[in-house]
Amino acid sequence: MSELTERIMEISGADPRKCMKCGKCTAACPVAGEMDIKPHQFASCLAKGQSDLLLSSNTLHKCLSCFACVERCPRDVRPGRLIDAVRQCVVRARGQAFLTPEEIPELLDDELPQQLLVSAFRRYRR
């Protein structure tokens, strides 16, 4: 397993090998039509160690982080978190950190999943 794949799995805490290729994540995704690598293919690429492909995928930008895929995945593969983890790897590689610790408190909302917040900031503050 490549270092990158290992890092993605570590950050996301998800195991792409659990995927049984049912396609429910892609079926649940509101923007899958615009993605070059669909959520289910994301999991499959990772499982096969083809994580390099993912770094340049437009999926990182198209994904809304709505986590419908995470919610509905019958195998707990959590594709949305995999996508987010790849995003994080890209951001880190560029030496960019879009969020400062001081900014966090005022953004917090009890209703919002924390990951969504973090993920959204990575997407919009470019």
Binding site: D15, R17, K18, M20, K21, A47, K48
Partner: peptide
């Protein structure tokens, strides 16, 4: 079967 995939890393291709 899932153990073969998840635990033993067998590569299943549809």
């Amino acid at each position: 079967y899932r153990r073969a995939v998840e635990q033993y890393g067998v590569n299943y291709i549809k």
